[in-house]
Design a binder for these strands. Structure first.
Length: 432
RNA sequence: GCUGAGGUAGCCUAGCCCGGUAAGGCGCCAGCCUUGAAAGCUGGUGGCGAUCUCGCCGCGGGAGUUCGAAUCUCCCCCUCAGCGCCA
């Protein structure tokens, strides 16, 4: 949610910024929010006048009683007040709620460094690393590798849970755990505190961290409960300090979230291929930071550098794109995607999303900054980035590290987490 | 799930039975004092709005009674303790 002060004092700035998102709807919403805000303030003033008179009268009645005088005339005026007050209060409430509803649909203000563009085709490549393997040759798609080695079951998963689910078995489970521990140890070394968050969140905090369209399209709801399966640990991590005041001296707070991510992805691309590249459930190690506003640009680069380093250590070629205005999403002010090279597909595909959300989530969550336990008006910034989503990391490893004999080499940095093994091979359903 | 106790400003607590401007402490800020600091003393310390020496709001949320509700009534939410169930 954008700052109401900006809406009142620098509307032309906000309009200019919103226009860069290339969606005229946002400008319309902003104009509506401004109009509603003005109306609300007028209504508030009116209700205040009623309340002021009520307070005056009730003080006078009390005083008259104390002096044993009859306050009949005062009481008569007082009796007539609630009617007008009720109407004014109701109008004030409605306008306030309606202003905020509109305000909440307005996206975050974009950083100046976000390139102007209409969709993901206009994202700007800002870095590349590694030598992409040119030519797919005999290479198999990662889903086929998994099936050939008996490391996953997609048909049975479909029968049990539907498309987009999977059973992982044998060595690939160890690979998954190895990736988790590899990423986690790396982040611990860089000052991140590991956090296992709740995998279900109530609606109220959820509305603080994401936008409403996402909410309807990607979230799984628990029937009969006010609970939603998290789409990423970013969400419960952001909600960790819901309604609290963070002491400035404690910032930045670096968190490493470990969780499954659950996504329906209705209306998106859906489940598009056999395998685990796009699925309804996957494990992710997430970087998350609560920061002072002045530090957030630097920390955004830090998150990106961490994510890059992880893929360099895995020796997976990648490129970094600066996501353009038309593709950046509602909540982020600036976003980098890291796209790994998938040799079978001969394409770069997203494995990391790294966002600076500035004050957008914090304001919606009622998180403020303060000095020494004293509340302040400043709203801290939040930043998040994938460290490793194991599903995608496994997919790219299986495509890149597969060998002509059908086995798959284990990336060197993961071997300590896999009993020193150099390769994974066919799984059988016996004890491993 | 049952029973009980609770939810008051950044934190802790009083007020609630018996309706009339939310008291006190801690922390923090400023001033005085001091070579400096601590202690001590004094003042300040939430949100919203405005015509900016003013007003309104604020006691978990909502509704009601009343001229007037932290206080009375009803509904709901949450937390804690004990019991039950349980990996």
């Amino acid at each position: 949610m954008i700052d109401v002060e900006l809406l009142r004092n620098r509307p032309e700035k906000v309009e200019e910024n919103l226009a860069r998102r290339r969606n005229p709807e946002y400008l319309r919403l902003f104009a509506e929010a401004r109009a509603k805000d003005a109306e609300w303030r007028a209504a508030l003033l009116e209700a205040d006048h009623f309340r002021r008179r009520r307070n005056e009268l009730s003080r006078e009645i009390a005083a008259a009683r104390r002096e044993a005088k009859s306050p009949t005339a005062l009481e008569e005026e007082a009796r007539g007040l609630p009617e007008g007050l009720r109407a004014a209060e109701q109008r004030e409430h409605e306008l306030h709620a309606s202003r905020d509803a509109v305000l909440r649909r307005i996206p975050n203000l974009l950083d100046d460094a976000v390139p102007y563009g209409k969709d993901d085709s206009e994202n700007v490549v800002v870095a590349t690393w590694g030598e992409p393997i040119r030519g797919a040759g005999e290479r198999k798609a990662h889903g086929d590798v998994l099936e050939a080695l008996g490391l996953a079951e997609f048909d049975r998963a479909r029968r049990a849970s539907g498309a987009g689910f999977y059973y992982l078995e044998g060595d690939v489970v160890l690979l998954d755990l190895a990736l988790q521990r590899f990423a986690l140890d790396f982040l611990r070394g860089r000052g991140f505190t590991p956090v296992e968050p709740p995998f279900l969140l109530r609606r109220e905090p959820y509305e603080g961290v994401t936008d409403l369209a996402d909410f309807e399209n990607v979230m799984y709801k628990i029937e009969g409960e006010d609970l939603y399966l998290i789409a990423t640990s970013e969400h419960p991590l952001a909600a960790l300090y819901l309604g609290e005041i963070l002491e400035e001296e404690r910032l930045p707070i670096r968190l490493a979230g470990l969780s499954y991510s659950f996504r329906r992805e209705i209306g998106g691309h859906g489940v598009d291929q056999k395998g685990i590249f796009r699925v309804h459930q996957f494990f992710k190690i997430e970087q998350f930071i609560f920061a002072r506003p002045e530090d957030s640009p630097r920390l955004h680069e830090e998150l990106r550098a961490n994510a890059e380093e992880l893929f360099r250590r895995l020796k997976v070629p990648y490129r970094v794109v600066n996501v353009c205005t038309g593709d950046v999403g509602t909540v982020a002010a600036k976003k980098y995607d890291i796209e790994a090279w998938f040799p079978r597909q001969q394409a770069y595909r997203e494995v990391v999303s790294c966002s600076n959300c500035t004050d957008y989530q914090s304001r919606r969550l009622g998180i403020r900054m303060g000095k020494a336990g004293r509340p302040g008006k400043v709203v801290p910034h939040t930043l998040n980035s994938t460290a490793i989503a194991t599903s995608r990391a496994i997919a790219v490893i299986l495509e890149q590290y597969q060998r002509p004999d059908g086995s798959v080499e284990v990336p060197e940095v993961l071997r300590p987490y896999m009993d020193g093994r150099e390769a994974i091979a066919v799984a059988s359903k016996g004890p491993s």
